[in-house]
């Protein structure tokens, strides 16, 4: 945690130097002005927005991991299913967020479902493809050993398949935890009912540049903290399957 903190302090120092030279707060307010604005903004409403965004990130993480890993396992085990779903997943992967927007607004209106849907779709295809790669990575020798000793059912899945998939599932969680926060904020900005992204959109409309920076600073800090938290959690859980 020491090094990232030093990196963050370094970035804030660079920001201060840049703001000093730009000397136009409407374009680039300094850290002090931004923190002062944040102090004014820090109220129950901001806290509620933070909680709302974090809830959506958590929902995206759960959807992508459960659906992505589940679908990835099914597709990895069945070449026919893989062939059937692959074009759909590739299309979803290539589709820009803006294209989903109209559909989402019509389908869900403005609210929490749109951002969760858009952010989940942004990560789902890569989660599925990563899991498919994991399933295909199952060691044939170990599978043959399990066949020989007639190991089936829960034991086979828990002790063999899940263990083989663990590094790939870790990669999925790493990717989603790193990017979901950003994706949720963008989606909130475009079609959210509340959350940090919505507040950033309001601040922009009010030409509250310091407010945009203050909210972005909160988003960055929470994003880093969330990613660190998830990484720490999966490192602990991963010890069961991933040999050091």
């Amino acid at each position: 945690m020491k090094r990232p903190l030093l990196g963050l302090l370094g970035a804030i120092a660079l920001w201060g130097i840049a703001a000093f030279f730009v000397d136009t707060p409407i374009i680039l307010p300094g850290p002090a002005e931004t923190l002062a604005r944040l102090a004014i903004m820090a109220d129950a409403a901001l806290f509620s927005s933070v909680v709302s965004s974090m809830g959506k990130v958590l929902a995206v993480l759960c959807i992508v991991v459960c659906l992505g890993v589940g679908l990835g396992m099914a597709l990895g085990l069945s070449p026919a299913l893989h062939e059937a779903f692959r074009p759909l997943l590739l299309a979803a992967q290539a589709m820009p967020v803006i294209s989903w927007l109209a559909l989402v607004v019509f389908a869900f209106g403005i609210g929490w479902r749109g951002p969760v849907f858009i952010a989940s779709l942004a990560f789902l295809p890569s989660a599925v493809f990563t899991t498919v790669a994991g399933v295909r990575h199952f060691e044939r020798d170990l599978v043959e050993m399990a066949d020989l000793y007639g190991v089936r059912g829960v034991r086979r899945w828990r002790d063999l398949y899940l263990g083989s998939l663990a590094p790939f599932m870790k990669a999925v969680v790493d990717t989603v935890s790193g990017g979901a926060w950003k994706a949720v904020l963008v989606a909130e900005y475009l079609c959210g009912g509340d959350g940090l992204g919505v507040r950033i959109a309001w601040a922009r409309q009010m030409a509250d540049v310091e407010g945009v920076y203050a909210l972005s600073l909160v988003a960055v800090l929470l994003g880093l903290l969330g990613e660190w938290g998830v990484r720490t959690a999966i490192r602990g859980a991963g010890r069961r399957w991933i040999p050091s």
């Binding site: 170990l142 043959e144 002790d159 063999l160 263990g163 663990a166 399957w241 991933i242 040999p243």
Partner: peptide, 8 residues
């Protein structure tokens, strides 16, 4: 070759 499950 031993074919042991590495994470167990």
């Amino acid at each position: 070759e031993p074919r042991l499950i590495p994470w167990l």
